[in-house]
Design a protein around this nucleic acid. Structure first.
Lengths: 248, 248
DNA sequence: CCAAAAGTGTTAGACCTACACCCATGA
DNA sequence: TCATGGGTGTAGGTCTAACACTTTTGG
């Protein structure tokens, strides 16, 4: 059984090296059978959507989300959604906040708990649901028409990400496990919409002694190959204990 | 009508000059009639609590909160709660997050949206409900036994406050409108649990040019009277535009 | 005149900013 | 050998940390 008035919506962020993107689906996709573990839940959602059509605009996009099963809390359900879409169990996930305006969804009062997730581009989206077509990354600067208050939710998730990325080392989750300093700089420049001085950025990051030099380099690039670094959470924790204040 | 599975809980912080406190009430107080604008709502809550007693421990304390009326969203309802308890319309209020573990409340699944509020000590609590006795400030370092997951909610609200206070000028809301630099320093020392150097703290704060010197001084103090300053939001906004990064 | 808290300046080191050129690689 | 992006050092200014004594007020 699902809770008809409680849903989870995930703002899934991805970074392609130049743009910060959000993964959206077309709303009727909420009904894809494979997504529901429980056949009864699928039936209940189908009924619900028959009564309360999501949007009159068949072309509108929406955040990936669904109603919460009775025996799950929203954290668990967000994890389930993310693992279904990325085949990863340890995606970086944070609750943004609850959205619950009385009329945010027509016909029925639905509280949605929004999450944002950061996806490492190494992992392919939708390994488990390859058949699905209407699933697409959109640049945060050119969003399509979206259902309900999703545009608002995306905006607030983005603000939360911007806040978090400056004071906590979370940006790494948007990069491959091994990344170059240039990739990291581009990431910050894109998310924060600023330009950073390369020399100063490198000094700052390397001085924190937070990154591990993998002693590897890029291969097959048509220019000088860059060093690859890794982020290590244990080192970060140790440094925080010693008084490190991560700040970009 | 109220929504039986959606509530708001407020972590109301106050600062008495030396301690950071949270306002709690004793759980049966949820039933005080004056709190409900709508007689029908009061009846519904009474019924609900008869079926689902809040706690077997009559001495347990809880966050101030209540179920959300059908025609309100949680922001509005949190504002209502705060204005009822402080007779102020513009209390500083932030959503912490939604708590919705399946078993956080016995008998019934209730999602609660937690807020934290910062109360200026100039304003007296409970002007509108002077009769109430079981309402008390507790030092955050010595909380009493509390119902449900409220201890968890308080902890997360506190973490959010600590985070916010370092990077945004919100601490002022816990002080009288006109305050001394020593009061401000004590506030930061208490909230962040650190010691700050007086000379350096003063230089830092005054260099931001964020505070307005009221040209007034304390009166009736048994020592040299301190200057009184005011925080001005418009000045802050202007400085942010010019690139100010508020950081303690 | 005493007790209590307000208020203040300097120095050394760390960190930040601005800025331009050579290096390594594959095509 | 060319195009592309990787990688580096320095100097001047600003911010931070550490530190102790005098001033003002009321009782």
């Amino acid at each position: 059984m699902i809770l008809e008035n409680l849903s989870v919506d995930c703002v899934i962020f991805g970074f392609d090296g130049a743009n910060l993107n959000v993964l959206l689906w077309q709303s009727e996709l909420n009904l894809i059978k494979e997504f529901y573990r429980d056949h009864e839940d699928y039936g209940q959602v189908t009924e619900l959507f028959k009564k309360n059509p999501i949007s009159s605009d068949k072309n509108a996009w929406g955040l990936i989300g669904s109603h919460v099963p009775v025996d799950e809390d929203s954290d668990e359900h967000a994890k389930y959604i993310l693992s279904t879409f990325t085949s990863l169990d340890n995606v970086f996930l944070r609750q943004v906040k609850a959205f619950n305006e009385a009329n945010r969804v027509p016909f029925q009062r639905v509280v949605t708990i929004a999450y944002y997730a950061l996806i490492n581009p190494d992992y392919h989206i939708m390994k488990k649901m390859d058949g699905i077509k209407s699933l697409k990354w959109f640049n945060i600067n050119s969003m399509p028409k979206v259902i309900f208050d999703h545009s608002n939710i995306i905006q607030e998730a983005l603000e939360k990400l911007r806040e978090e990325v400056r004071y906590h080392p979370v940006g790494f989750h948007l990069l491959p496990e091994k990344f170059t300093l240039t990739q990291l700089q581009n990431l910050y420049e894109t998310i924060l919409d600023v330009e950073l001085d390369t020399r100063n950025f490198r000094k700052k990051i390397l001085n924190m002694k937070l990154l591990v030099d993998t002693e590897q380099k890029q291969i097959n690039v048509a220019h000088r190959a860059a060093r690859l670094y890794e982020f290590n959470l244990d080192i970060y924790k140790k440094l925080v204990k010693e008084g490190l204040n991560f700040r970009i």
